[in-house]
Amino acid sequence: MTDLVETARPTGASRTDIGKIAAAAGLAVMLWASAFVAIRGVGNALSPAPLALLRLGVAAVTLTVIAAARRAVRVRLSRKAFLLIAAYAVLWLAGYTVALNAGERHVDAGTAALLVNLAPLIVAVAAGKFLGEGFSRSLIVGSLVALGGTAIIATGATAQRDWAGVLLCLLAAVLYAAGVMIQKVTLRHVDGLAAIWLGCVVATVVLLPWVPRLAGELQVASVGAVLGAVYLGVFPTAIGFTAWAYALRRMNAGRLSAVTYAVPAVSVMLSWLLLAEIPTAYGLVGGVLCLTGVAISRRR
């Protein structure tokens, strides 16, 4: 991971700065990997939108406390900056979260992580097109390999009538990639903490129509399910997205997104240890191809 960051470090950046960026990216990867397992564990107690609302509400409160402690509550934003924050909040924080929650009702945590991990390829292509980060032969080859892996996963899932989960996870990957692209531009106008804090607030407001349903489900949900949702809000969302924003502001979007290819491996391991879930043979073979494609696409 440090090597990936080194290749994109800004002029004059010290090794200490590189270490901080690598640590932030690594923390985000570990927390996001755990989120797939937590969502799978909580998903039977809370439906997709109410779970997203609780998760983002907890994250918004947590980040408000952090912002207040850092005396960063008063943030002056231009109209453009606020619109950018609102856009990625709706697409990534709200849309992606709901789509992933729904997808994991049909497929296991490891398979979901493998499918969502196509997002780095989408980011790399979009960054090359819209942010001037360029294209390469390896990106094209890697994209084709990864798409082949996705087709294998989809074939196995469809055979088991889980195609809805595959489509939802692919939708989550697209929303994730769109969110990263918009957030990259947003971070030119506002610091990472303010961006993710305000983004969580906006996403929570967008999901407020599901408050009555959330209230009803919380009355019958187990303590473990509620604690799982709180964990999702504090760690993968508040801390994980803040760490990601810190790293994203300091290196290019395409190369940073490449480090997330470690997420599925960690998710599969955690899913196996905590939920006794292992992806199908189709999922494992297709997942290996997806990860291979991502690795090929990021070769210099």
Rank of each mutant, 00 (worst) to 15 (best):
Y88R: 07
C200A: 15
V220Y: 09
I196L: 00
A203Y: 02
Y261R: 01
A25Q: 00
A247N: 13
A89R: 10
L100Q: 12
A194Y: 02
V259M: 06
T260P: 06
R40A: 12
A25K: 08
A67K: 10
G110E: 03
G179V: 02
S138D: 05
K184M: 02
Q219A: 15
G41A: 15
A52D: 06
R105N: 13
A253V: 07
L121F: 06
L115R: 04
A146G: 15
A225D: 01
L115E: 03
L256W: 01
S143T: 15
W244S: 03
Q219L: 13
W163R: 08
V202M: 02
T186V: 12
V73T: 15
A22Y: 04
G254N: 05
L4S: 05
R249C: 03
T11Y: 09
A146S: 15
A72V: 01
V259W: 02
L46P: 06
A52E: 06
I140K: 05
L53P: 07
I182G: 12
S257N: 05
W210T: 00
A102M: 09
V226I: 15
V123F: 03
V145G: 04
L144M: 14
R300V: 15
Q160N: 08
V201D: 04
G287K: 06
V125D: 03
I152D: 08
A86E: 05
A25F: 05
L227Y: 09
V294D: 00
G132Q: 06
R213F: 03
T242K: 04
L121Q: 05
P236G: 06
F235E: 07
V268H: 03
A159W: 05
R79W: 07
A245I: 03
Y88E: 08
G286M: 13
V58Q: 10
G165D: 10
A22G: 07
L207H: 02
A24M: 01
V29G: 00
V29P: 05
G286K: 09
V75F: 09
A28R: 11
A151F: 10
S14V: 06
A81Q: 01
T204W: 00
L139S: 04
T2D: 11
A126N: 10
I39E: 00
I85G: 12
L115D: 04
G142V: 05
C169E: 13
G19H: 01
R188Q: 13
P264L: 12
S47R: 03
L114G: 07
R213G: 01
A281N: 12
T242P: 00
V58Y: 04
A60E: 11
I140S: 10
